[in-house]
Amino acid sequence: MSELPWYNKGLFSSLNLRQKTLLTIGLTGLVLLIIFICGWMTNANLPTDFSIKMQAPSFQHPFGTDWMGRDMFARTLKGLSLSIMIGLAASILSSIIATLLAFLASINRACDEFVSWLIDLFASIPHILLIMMISIGLGKGAFGVTMAVAFSHWVNLTRVLRAEVLQINTSEYVLLSRKFGKSKLWIAKEHILPLVLSQIFVGTLLVFPHAIMHESSVTFLGFGLSPHEPAIGIILSESMSYLAMGAWWLAFFPGIALLIVVLLFDIIGDNLKRLIDPSEANK
């Protein structure tokens, strides 16, 4: 009993787990925010300077330059911030869809079967294919990609929320609430929503990295953002033609940067889940 648990050893030993988790979330969030803001502030129309085209990484251009002499660091930042934006919009939208469907499923048996059918339908189509189809259907571009990612990522969260809502709906406090004469809408708002809110929040954050990855993938394949937008997918697909010439930095740095952003979001999601999960909550 006297032995200290792992999280109380070493650095930050004075903090308890919850404080540490929050610290992790805070720091990670800060890094992402900085990336986002930097990208936002960077001028999209980078000057082309053919005198410095195709330069390898240096102190002046840490990520090197491309075939038009544009600084790859600035392009990557811009691309990441665009990805974060699209990811944010798509994951929020997909969570809203998931929440609405989960509550729809709780209305009656027919609705529940409809939602289950919808879940099965969307789960049976490969993600990438679905995203490409929707994106093309909606005319590609930022709007098309956002919608496509949103409409293909609600499935998992809906499944979780549907089960959760179903369980809460059969609990004694909800049954009792009906006998107090409360309406279904009131119960959904007052009883069920507060209980699933944390799930929705975590679900949104966990969809984020997927959304970013998929946005980049379809863009890379040419079904997403238009080529003049500095998205990571575009940068990567452009770099393909120069890789053979030895310009490795064109794909390497943007690729790694994308990976890091995705990982950071994953860390936030996992930590948040740990914070909310009751079995871990009291460490």
Binding site: N16, R18, Q19, L22, N282
Partner: peptide, 11 residues
């Protein structure tokens, strides 16, 4: 006794 979190970060 049990360690519990009450209101935010205080144990």
């Amino acid at each position: 006794s049990f360690t519990q979190y009450v209101q935010g970060l205080n144990r």
